[in-house]
């Protein structure tokens, strides 16, 4: 069995185990015995609460993992991911606007569409800002600009919010969590995430060719404008739809491709699928962990990922310091 096949098998097995664990774990521990018995009071906990939550973790993790891998491949920059480049925060800003205006509460699909629109705007701005001169510094600074703008937008929405309910809603939502999302919300967003991931898969050969830079890729017959468009739409759908449901969960797309590169090889097109699986594993594991942390309130998943991802990002940056300075 090749290393690649072994990695797929390992990640899939981990997903299976974690999914079962995710249905069991939480404030109320639900053993296998209760799964088959519809009259058991814990039955709705599994199927009405934990099943949607588990599936959401799978979809969101896969969407964020693959978006990160695709963005790193396109920018040739291992620091790129929907969080670091401001795509997630712009998606959040889009969604917050609808919460602020009160539309989001009335029709849930409005939030999703606004999130994806925010993400699309972010990707297009990124490509316009960093565009052809895709140096590491340019992209990271473009991400800083987008993150700052989106942060300011959200702060403005908070300070102008019409009522405390809206403020509470926005603050809770921004921190990123998988808790208490309904099956309806999942059903609304999942098709977009799947569609986005499928679109991103089409960029695989182009991402491979970009290993040789834009001139190299163009000389290999890669249609770069088309690649850019597919990438923008794919990331907007996948990451935008994720953020619209869960709020900002950062660092997934940053960490996962980085961890998988030594295992399956650095070819960017070949990293897309493993990163989707790896993202699902990471988000599912983290979500189980936050449920098991003792305390009055559950730790927000977005906060936990940031606590994990911050130091990781820092270490990665230290490692790259010489390359950036050069």
């Amino acid at each position: 069995m090749s290393r690649r096949a072994a990695t797929f098998a390992g990640l899939t097995a981990a997903l299976g185990v974690l999914a079962v664990l995710s249905l069991m774990a939480g404030r109320v521990w639900v053993p296998f015995g209760a799964w088959m018995d519809q009259t058991d009071p814990r039955w709705p906990i599994i199927f009405d609460l934990r099943l949607p939550r588990t599936l959401l973790a799978l979809f969101v993790g896969a969407a964020l993992g693959m978006s990160g891998a695709a963005m790193q491949g396109y920018t040739r920059n291992p620091l790129a991911d929907p969080g670091s480049l401001g795509v997630s925060s712009m998606a959040a800003f889009g969604a917050v606007l609808t919460l602020y205006l009160g539309q989001g509460a009335q029709a849930p699909w409005v939030i999703s569409v606004a999130g994806m629109a925010g993400a699309l705007a972010a990707v297009l701005l990124l490509l316009a800002l960093a565009g052809r001169a895709s140096g590491v510094v340019t992209f990271v600074l473009s991400g800083v600009i987008l993150n700052t703008m989106a942060g300011a937008g959200v702060a403005l929405a908070l300070s102008l919010a019409p009522n405390p309910w809206a403020v509470n809603e926005i603050v809770n939502w921004i921190m990123g969590s998988l808790a208490d999302r309904s099956a309806d919300e999942l059903a609304l967003a999942a098709p977009f995430m799947v569609l986005g991931c499928v679109a991103l898969m089409f960029t695989a050969p182009a991402l491979d060719a970009l290993t040789l830079g834009e001139t190299g890729a163009w000389s290999l017959g890669v249609d770069l404008p088309r690649t850019r468009l597919i990438l923008a739409v794919g990331v907007a759908l996948a990451a935008g739809a994720s953020v619209a449901i869960t709020g900002v969960i950062g660092f997934v797309g940053l960490i996962v491709p980085h961890l998988l590169r030594p295992v399956v090889g650095a070819r960017p097109g070949g990293l897309l699928l493993p990163s989707a699986l790896g993202g699902a594993v990471l988000v599912l594991a983290a979500d189980i962990a936050v449920r098991l942390v003792p305390g009055a309130n559950e730790v927000k998943l977005g906060v936990a990922m940031a606590a994990l991802g911050g130091p990781f990002f820092f270490a990665l940056l230290m490692q790259m310091r010489r390359r950036i300075a050069g």
Binding site: A209, T215, G221, A266
Partner: peptide, 20 residues
């Protein structure tokens, strides 16, 4: 000045020549 963005192995890099 060809860019080599990722630490792929030589065989993989040469294989990129087959993308067309």
């Amino acid at each position: 000045t060809p860019e080599l963005a990722w630490a792929v192995d030589v065989e993989t890099l040469v294989g990129l020549g087959r993308i067309p």
